[in-house]
């Protein structure tokens, strides 16, 4: 594939995958019925299935993927490390912790903004911690270990909350947050995270040039005129907003933020700035397709989207890590 076709190609793939997600499902719908339902014509139950169930679900999968793909690409640029990603670094787990905390202590009833805000706060704290650690340790392996530690800690805290929570806690709720799902999402759910998502995307896209400068290392990047502190703060903020918002919609979904930038990078000459947009599109497409697979899989209980993402993503993560054996000093 040629560089010039990358973005148009991914946009087409995004549209096709979302449309495909609309007509695949328990009630198969022909293309003609989908199109009538899209313009709110035709059979009323078709309109309901499309607008209340399938389209919001497909868009949720796409948006969550785009958010995770973009924050993965930006964190990789900032930390100069192809293994950086909200899931691996414990950012998603911390966001889940934030969300479950407010849910199980009844704070979520106060306002619909509470859950997204808590998830984002969790994500921001984790991203700041990781970036602080990255400044100090400088070793790729140590940084990943800090992320693993943060993930385990957040998981343990969630279990602890579950034991202490005043409200009865159902195991399936916990699994939803830890494994991730976009089932039963509505446009209202998306509307509440939209401002955070927009802010996150906008912030990360302003850091593009700085990410390219960081190719040279922090010292030389300062030398050519990059304000490193500002760059760090903006990437942490943008990535925290996006991963937190993604978790607020779908729980913790791992690995998609690693795979998308990794696939995209050779097509953009390894320029971190130019990985952002294609990573967003590709990660969105991956999650839409994975969610279709989840819905169509002939299992008695529906699979979780995060499980499918990890089934594909974890081996890919190991493969990328193995390829770095020479450079991972």
């Amino acid at each position: 594939m040629n560089q010039h076709w990358l973005i148009p190609g991914l946009i087409s793939a995004a549209i096709i995958s979302v449309l495909a997600a609309c007509f695949l499902g328990a009630t198969p719908m022909a293309v003609g019925r989908i199109i009538s339902a899209l313009v709110r014509q035709g059979d009323q139950s078709d309109v309901t299935i499309l607008w209340q169930i399938r389209l919001p679900r497909a868009l949720a999968a796409f948006i969550v993927g785009a958010a995770l793909g973009t924050s993965g690409a930006a964190l990789q640029g900032l930390l100069r490390n192809p293994l950086a990603e909200p899931g691996i670094l414990g950012v998603s787990a911390s966001a889940s912790l934030g969300a479950t905390f407010v849910l199980y202590y009844g704070l979520a009833a106060v306002s619909a903004w509470v859950v997204p805000s808590a998830a984002i706060l969790g994500a921001l704290l984790a991203t700041s911690l990781i970036t602080f650690a990255a400044i100090r340790v400088r070793s790729v392996v140590t940084l990943i270990l800090v992320g693993v530690g943060l993930s385990s800690f957040s998981g343990a805290m969630m279990t602890l909350l579950m034991n202490l929570a005043p409200n009865p806690f159902s195991l399936s709720d916990l699994i939803n947050w830890m494994l991730g799902s976009v089932a039963n999402r509505s446009f209202v759910d998306l509307a509440f995270v939209a401002p955070f998502l927009l802010a996150g995307f906008a912030i990360l896209f302003t850091t593009k040039r700085g990410l390219t400068a960081l190719t040279l290392g922090e010292e030389a990047a300062s030398g050519i005129g990059l304000d490193i502190k500002r760059q760090r703060i903006l990437v942490v903020l943008g990535a925290g907003l996006l991963s937190g918002a993604a978790v607020a919609v779908a729980g913790a979904i791992g690995f998609v933020g690693i795979i998308a930038p990794h696939v995209v990078r050779p097509f953009v000459d390894y320029d971190p700035a130019r990985t952002l947009l294609p990573s967003a599109l590709l990660a969105g497409v991956i999650l839409v397709i994975a969610d279709v697979a989840v819905r169509l899989a002939p299992t008695s209980n529906e699979l979780k989207l995060g499980v499918v993402a990890a089934l594909i993503g974890a081996p890919a993560f190991v493969w990328i890590a193995m390829q770095r054996r020479a450079a991972a000093a």
Binding site: R80, T215, G217, E219, A220, I224, G225, Y270, D271, R274
Partner: peptide, 29 residues
């Protein structure tokens, strides 16, 4: 400024690395 440690994070193209010298002037690929 040419620092002592010059680790490149990504296998960028030579012309793009040289172009980073123009960062302060707003240049990008």
């Amino acid at each position: 400024y040419l620092p002592q440690q010059r680790p490149l994070a990504w296998p960028s193209r030579v012309r793009d690395i040289a172009l980073l010298g123009r960062f302060a002037y707003g240049a990008s690929p």
